[in-house]
Write a protein that binds this DNA or RNA. Structure first.
Lengths: 342, 342
DNA sequence: ATGAAAGCGCTAACAA
DNA sequence: TTGTTAGCGCTTTCAT
């Protein structure tokens, strides 16, 4: 079938030893330029390619990094992946993407799969469901480099890259307040996620600073990150069921923003039209939903930074003990209008 | 650092030979149940994991398949990837995704990278730019299993999975005609892509059957698949510059649909508002652009079928010479209104 | 039922 | 400068 040419073949053909060929190929200096040329030419002519698997086995290194996100069909993550790619490729690394679909079990399976010595390190944004970190803990303890991005787990001493969620949430909430909205609800992600807590804190801080009281009944969580629309529907219906309905909603994520707008479109009659501001990196939404304000995260940059840190970790000669927590700024795109007087 | 336990370690600890341990682990039957139990228990307790790289080297098989698409941040492809995942994982395969970003050079690099014996087969949807197939040809000739999906290259004898592009395009065009539109332009993808030709054919057939004449000046191509918005802007501006502007546009792809709507929003004044129907798998667009009719492709299913065929190819004992071309149906989601009389 | 040995493709320490 | 040898972790004849 598919039997590529090996170093041995070259050695045989050129009447050299395998090691000499290897040396020629890896541009070692302790070699006769003449021999080197012969080898290189022969290799080129016969389309020789290093077998990366053999190399991996030998070097205990695969030059590939695992990426775990909840889903690629999400503007934020696909942009982050582009950033990851850009740095990984530049450094000679492959990336292996797997999706948790916000399921903790799936995430564990993915991690195990990747960790089985086939990736040199892992870049992970946690699933909405994950509350138990044993598997990650263990792997990290065993020496596998791991860098968190976006959805962080603070309990692990390693590099972390996220955006300034609190500030972003605060900006968004303040923006709603500025526009005249007075009962601002919060559609939140799974409660244990780092981003959930931070965004909640920003929301609360904005309210408090403006003399509003924080009413827990104005906050609904989506425990599965909105991975099923039903979950979001339920949350939105809850808002709709309130006697005094919110006049604005601050939505915690890209996924939820889409889900929330979908649900509102489905359930709310013409007489109810709350202002919406939410985290979102969707170009499409931004473009066609003209009354939706969004907080944009520097997803591409986040991917780049996280990958850079991971590769540093992987390639470090000595165990690293100083870990960084990088926090990137967000941007508010204002689209909603002032609240109409009535 | 990260030094996992190996078969040797187990053998040493249990005073057995490596081969016996291997047999126990791989559930061979020529082994003493007692020994087997001991090994299994020890392995379990010490968290033994097979080294997949060593296995790959030995078996000349990596249990991973490469996927090449233009970008994951595209509803159609991300849905297809979900389908690919579902089948791949079920069969014990990993997937390695890489993006061509519709650049031919990038695509070649990706293919080379994947093909270097580190994947067992490749699933590919061609980049918009690709006109030279030598690299694919060569790899396929060398025995690497390749399955095309969506954007096919007919010149290669292998499995192909696509949707019924011609029919879909025809439906869409007919739909526009039914709604009363008379000058229907076509915003097409790169001219050499299979999908471009098929969709063009459907468009033309619908026009012809309805007694319209096909006017080439109503057709604009995006040679890079709309990977830069500028390209789409130019195309749309061309339509806008026409003396007799089209009253409807049939758009060839997901990416282009978004690009086209974006461009129209940017450039067209209030006095020009053509009806748009296009290929798109975007939930968001579907939801919030209420006057946009879309042709939906069974992306998930396409991914499933293609992966299934690829795995068949990979696991076939004998060279396969009978290749399938699977064509899946599309669905038209009608949203645009009838043309207003004036 | 178990072990010894070879080999997958490659590199690197050591010898020559 | 080049060759020899061993070994990365695993499976698989072939002996025992």
């Amino acid at each position: 079938m598919f039997k590529p040419i090996t170093i041995k073949d070259i050695a045989l053909a050129l009447d050299l030893s395998a090691s000499t060929v290897s040396r020629a190929l890896s541009d070692s200096y302790e070699i006769n330029p003449e021999t080197k040329k012969r080898v290189l030419e022969y290799a080129e002519k016969n389309n020789y390619k290093r077998n990366p698997i053999a190399l991996s086995l030998k070097q205990r290194k695969s030059y590939s990094i695992g990426v775990i996100v909840c889903e690629v069909a999400n503007s934020f993550f696909s942009q982050a992946i582009d950033g990851i790619e850009s740095i990984a490729y530049k450094n000679g690394y492959n990336i292996v993407i797997s999706q948790s679909h916000d399921s903790s079990d799936q995430e564990i399976m993915n991690i195990q799969h990747l960790a089985n010595r086939s990736v040199d390190g892992i870049l992970i944004s946690l699933s909405a469901e994950t509350t138990n970190f044993d598997h990650i803990q263990k792997l990290h303890g065993a020496g596998l480099p791991i860098v968190f991005f976006d959805r962080i787990y603070d309990g692990l001493a390693t590099h972390k890259v996220s955006s300034d969620n609190k500030k972003g949430a605060k900006m968004a909430t303040q923006h709603l307040i500025n526009k005249g909205y007075r009962k601002i609800a919060h559609l939140a992600n799974a409660p244990h996620l780092s981003i959930t807590k931070e965004r909640l804190a920003g929301y609360q801080e904005a309210l408090t600073e403006n003399g509003f009281k924080v009413d827990p009944s104005n906050i609904t969580y989506c425990h599965h990150g909105g991975s099923s629309q039903k979950e979001v529907d339920t949350a939105v219906q809850y808002f709709l069921s309130m006697k005094d309905k919110p006049d604005a909603i601050f939505v915690a994520s890209d996924r939820l923003s889409i889900g929330c707008l979908t649900a509102l479109k489905k359930f709310s009659g013409n007489n109810y039209d709350p202002a919406i501001a939410g985290f979102s990196n969707s170009d499409v939404l931004d473009l066609f939903k003209s009354d939706f304000s969004s907080i944009r995260q520097p997803a591409f940059e986040m991917g780049r930074v996280a990958t850079d840190l991971l590769i540093q970790l992987i390639e470090s000669k000595y165990p690293v003990h100083e870990y960084q927590s990088v926090v990137l700024g967000t941007e508010l795109i204002e689209r909603i209008k002032s609240k109409p007087r009535n």
